[in-house]
Amino acid sequence: MRRFPRRSLAVLATLGTLALTGCGTETGDPAGHVPSATGADRTIRAERLMQVTKVHEETGMTLLEGPTFDEGGGLIVVDVTAPEGKPKVLRVDPGSRTARAVHTDGRGAYTSAQFSPHDGRLYLSDYVHGEIISLAPDGSDPQTFFSGDVDGARMNPDDIAFDQEGNLYVSDSRSLSVGDAHGRVVRIDRDGEKSTVMAGGLASTNGISFDADYQGLWISELTQNRISYLRLDAKDGVASRHTAIRVDGGIAQTDSIAVDADGNLYQALHGRAAMVVYDKHGERLATVELPARTKGLESATNVAITPGGTKAYMTVSGSAGGYLYTFDALAKGIRQSNGG
């Protein structure tokens, strides 16, 4: 999820509304997929699939996140800044390029979405209210899975990841100021009863994903432009932690993370509508870019790769609206490349 302006966050926290700023129009977007070059750090040109949302008059912006595939092949996305009465969760049919509302309410600001392997429900993180809610796959039956403080402090849950048993791992941002390092990684048992801080002292924790073998967690820290690696032990704890990759993002910052079947990392960028791809050893393999002359799209927030295939769907937002772009991933999609 992109970082909200501090003034907007204050409004969200105190009023429970989404008074965020941003406006504009798109002035260009050539169609067509440009084949990528070969070799290290090649450029992959993404192709526009469709516009999903427009800028909301009430909040001054739109921000697509998720995305995650349901069992029927529909692509679930969330609009973080959707106001009350507008769709906050949508299902996209990539084939027909249509979208329909799945869920809305008058409270949540949902920054991620993922289906649990334990109960098959759709889980959403509410960044503003510090909660995790779940829905039936069709968007009905909303339930609060987790709410309240963790070790005496309320979460600002950004992204989520499930282990194979259905336990939930949360990137708890907490930081509102540059230089703060109060972010955490929180583990919540699959029944929602027990929460544990696995790591602290992180700089605006944002992306979170298991590696391909579920041996550890990749964590992006937005205000430090770095990706950390938490190696897990056999007792659901952290065996070690280190800075794995320093992202040269310029004015852009590290957003969500996805991992493909070969263990490659797809690092989304807030402040630039692009993703950078690394292998598990930190080598930069490719940069995913939008077509030249595309205007009004400032951030790529996340990506989902088709399970068992290589078609990737990237959520991109800005003053032109919220869009889905597609590209060919470097390897096949797995659970770790499907939401969060």
Rank of each mutant, 00 (worst) to 15 (best):
M155S: 04
S175P: 05
V11C: 07
Q164R: 15
D260K: 04
D70G: 13
D93S: 11
D328M: 09
L12P: 00
V186K: 02
T306V: 13
E47G: 08
A101H: 06
A161I: 03
M61N: 15
T81P: 01
Q253Y: 13
L202R: 04
D279C: 02
G28M: 09
K311F: 03
D141F: 10
D141Y: 09
R97C: 14
Y323A: 02
R3N: 11
P142E: 14
G24C: 13
G85Y: 12
R100P: 05
K54Q: 14
Y127P: 03
E289M: 12
P67F: 10
R97H: 13
L269G: 03
Y313E: 08
Q143I: 03
D180K: 00
G72I: 08
I227F: 01
A212V: 13
A239Q: 13
R107W: 07
D255G: 09
E47Y: 07
G120I: 11
R97L: 15
L290F: 12
G16H: 06
G72E: 15
S209I: 00
T68M: 04
G339S: 01
V316E: 03
Q114D: 11
R246M: 11
G322R: 10
V52Q: 07
I219C: 08
E289F: 03
P117T: 10
A46E: 02
A300R: 01
P137R: 04
D151V: 03
V238M: 09
H281M: 06
V316Y: 03
I219R: 05
G66Y: 04
G192L: 01
V52N: 07
A19I: 14
